[in-house]
Amino acid sequence: MSVVEQYARAHIVTDADLPQEGDEAVPVVLRYDPANDPGSVRIRLPDSPEWTFSRSLLEQGLRVPAGSGEVRVWPCGRVQAVVEFHSAEGVCVVQFETKALLRFLRRTYMATPVGTRETSAGTHETSADSRETSVG
């Protein structure tokens, strides 16, 4: 199992009428560490803490609006997706190209397929109810 790290560009969405710094694409790091937490993905934005949430939430949110805890994900048209992060400081809304998130998800499933978990011996075991993933 290896760590999956992918760099992407995203737009920070603001509600301001005038052009803002957020209008330009910013670098974002998408990260998956199956040895640490095979069910979670991480997103690190510039000047922001790293957000950790379930890999299945990201996948579901690319098809239909989904949310859990402080994170919401939903499709935005045919080629974009929005990820919304809630914190004590406020809300951060980030718009991604869907293909970048799909590419990242595919790579995470190659590292640790759905229904596979690491056993205490460090080997992999596939659960009886594992299913095909619907990632593009």
Rank of each mutant, 00 (worst) to 15 (best):
residue 7 Y to W: 14
residue 109 Y to P: 00
residue 45 L to N: 03
residue 106 R to T: 11
residue 101 L to C: 02
residue 135 V to P: 08
residue 116 T to E: 13
residue 116 T to D: 14
residue 2 S to D: 15
residue 7 Y to G: 15
residue 72 R to I: 01
residue 75 P to V: 06
residue 85 F to T: 05
residue 123 T to S: 14
residue 126 T to Y: 08
residue 24 E to Q: 10
residue 135 V to M: 09
residue 89 E to V: 04
residue 103 R to A: 14
residue 50 E to Y: 00
residue 107 R to F: 00
residue 45 L to S: 00
residue 7 Y to K: 15
residue 52 T to Y: 03
residue 101 L to P: 07
residue 135 V to G: 07
residue 116 T to A: 11
residue 108 T to H: 05
residue 40 S to V: 03
residue 64 V to N: 12
residue 15 D to H: 13
residue 109 Y to K: 01
residue 61 G to N: 04
residue 39 G to M: 04
residue 2 S to N: 14
residue 104 F to E: 05
residue 11 H to W: 15
residue 82 V to T: 09
residue 118 E to A: 12
residue 69 G to W: 11
residue 61 G to M: 06
residue 10 A to G: 08
residue 75 P to L: 06
residue 121 A to Q: 14
residue 13 V to N: 08
residue 131 R to P: 01
residue 127 S to V: 12
residue 53 F to N: 02
residue 88 A to C: 03
residue 130 S to A: 15
residue 29 V to K: 06
residue 14 T to K: 11
residue 119 T to R: 15
residue 79 V to A: 11
residue 58 L to F: 04
residue 28 V to M: 00
residue 48 S to T: 02
residue 117 R to I: 11
residue 72 R to P: 00
residue 60 Q to K: 15
residue 60 Q to R: 15
residue 11 H to P: 02
residue 18 L to V: 09
residue 85 F to S: 03
residue 39 G to S: 07
residue 67 G to Q: 13
residue 67 G to C: 01
residue 23 D to Y: 03
residue 12 I to T: 12
residue 119 T to I: 08
residue 27 P to C: 01
residue 45 L to G: 02
residue 20 Q to C: 04
residue 3 V to G: 08
residue 70 E to L: 10
residue 9 R to Y: 13
residue 57 L to M: 06
residue 40 S to K: 01
residue 29 V to I: 07
residue 96 F to Q: 03
residue 21 E to M: 02
residue 1 M to A: 14
residue 123 T to I: 06
residue 48 S to R: 03
residue 25 A to N: 01
residue 76 C to P: 00
residue 27 P to E: 07
residue 18 L to M: 06
residue 30 L to T: 03
residue 64 V to D: 10
residue 24 E to T: 07
residue 103 R to E: 12
residue 92 C to L: 10
residue 99 K to P: 00
residue 101 L to K: 00
residue 63 R to Y: 08
residue 37 D to S: 10
residue 86 H to T: 13
residue 104 F to Q: 01
residue 13 V to H: 08
residue 129 D to R: 04
residue 79 V to P: 00
residue 79 V to G: 07
residue 52 T to N: 00
residue 101 L to N: 05
residue 40 S to A: 13
residue 111 A to D: 07
residue 71 V to Y: 10
residue 78 R to A: 15
residue 52 T to D: 02
residue 132 E to H: 02
residue 45 L to R: 02
residue 60 Q to F: 06
residue 14 T to F: 07
residue 96 F to N: 04
residue 38 P to T: 01
residue 117 R to A: 11
residue 43 I to M: 12
